[in-house]
């Protein structure tokens, strides 16, 4: 708030004041008073008001500026109503009341959606637990009646299972903190589990798996990690080439982190699309190839979950040569020491 702007707001008072001073001066003309006194009256009135204005200006300026700076300091700006400064003018009380009312109504509104979302998430989780039973039963039936046809059905069942899993983790992705437990895990353990999840598809599509090392220990939630690796392997299967299909998986320990490489020799991604692969709903050129059915969800979810789990996620690719995904786990020497 600048003083100039403040004075502009006070334009009516100032005009009235000037009008009053001029009127007084005109009324004083017929009287035989010293010119000094006549001027003094005018100046006194004007100076008096000016001081009044200044006092008011500084108290208001101080008040609003404190609010502004506090908002800046706050991470959650809407919490300002909890830290409003004390004011010595009435308008501030009105403002305070308004902010409080707005805040309250906003909170109610937000809570309503929060509740709706929770409710929806609970439903999805429940639904997914239900759908897993018929999937399990179907897989069991396939196992008891093994032939080429059921093997093909088995492959489709794995896809269904993967899609439901994706839905489950999508629903959970906003509340990672709630169901996640950090454990000491060997990379091999999570990689093998992810490969086994895709066994039917990998064998049917004749994709060879080349695993090296993976002896390193990481500290993370295995369920979430398996899901992430699973998504990456799914992509490698989906976008594989016609022949000599291969996925190479190896690890590398550095001073500050442990890197898990997942490298395929598939159809790759165009260079100008690389920056967008983690965007939600982005399918790119590969996604438009008939029969691939990209959803644009897999990598988006991976990125989101990796961010929450503090795992770095990098993707490099060359068109027609293949794609390499790196999962970068922090090497927590602090935990190691214990």
């Amino acid at each position: 708030m600048r003083f100039k702007d403040y004075l502009k707001d006070k334009m009516i008072y100032i005009s009235l004041l000037l009008f009053a001073v001029i009127t007084i001066e005109i009324l004083l003309i017929p009287y035989d008073i010293q010119i000094f006194i006549k001027i003094y009256v005018a100046v006194a009135i004007i100076v008096g008001f000016l001081i009044g204005f200044l006092v008011e200006y500084y108290s208001k300026k101080n008040y609003y500026e404190t609010i502004k700076s506090r908002i800046k300091e706050l991470q959650e700006e809407y919490l300002i109503m909890e830290v409003l400064p004390k004011a010595d003018f009435t308008e501030a009380n009105i403002l305070e009341e308004i902010i409080r009312d707005i805040g309250k109504s906003m909170l109610e509104n937000v809570n309503k959606y929060k509740y709706l979302q929770e409710d929806y998430k609970d439903f999805i989780e429940l639904w997914i637990h239900e759908i897993k039973i018929p999937i399990a039963t179907s897989k069991m039936i396939v196992e008891n009646n093994k032939n080429e046809i059921t093997a093909s059905i088995d492959e489709e069942l794995d896809k269904i299972d993967n899609y439901t899993e994706q839905a489950l983790f999508y629903a959970r992705s906003n509340t990672v903190e709630k169901d996640y437990i950090v454990r000491k895990i060997q990379l091999k353990e999570i990689v093998n589990a992810s490969i086994l999840k895709n066994k039917a598809q990998l064998i049917q599509n004749k994709i060879s798996i080349d695993i090296k090392d993976l002896e390193e220990i990481v500290y993370t939630d295995s369920k979430w990690c398996i899901f992430i690796i699973n998504q990456i392997i799914q992509n490698s299967i989906k976008y594989s080439k016609r022949e000599n299909r291969q996925i190479e998986i190896f690890s590398e320990e550095k001073k500050e982190n442990i890197i898990l490489h997942l490298k395929d020799n598939g159809i790759g991604i165009k260079e100008n699309e690389l920056t967008r692969v983690f965007e939600k709903g982005f399918t790119g050129e590969n996604g438009r190839i008939t029969g691939k059915k990209s959803t644009g969800i897999g990598l988006y979810l991976c990125k989101k979950l990796c961010d929450k789990l503090c795992i770095g996620l990098e993707l490099n690719s060359k068109k027609d040569e293949g794609t390499e995904v790196k999962l970068i786990f922090p090497n927590n020497s602090f935990i190691n020491m214990k």
Binding site: K132, A136, K199
Partner: peptide, 29 residues
């Protein structure tokens, strides 16, 4: 079980279960 998270697994093991497997399970496993 079809409940697939570490917390449930931990709870089950704490309750004295020897193994925990989630549906749909890998039959060979």
């Amino acid at each position: 079980t079809s409940r697939d998270n570490e917390l449930d697994e931990l709870l089950s093991i704490n309750n004295g279960a020897d193994q925990y497997i989630t549906k749909p399970y890998n039959i060979q496993i």
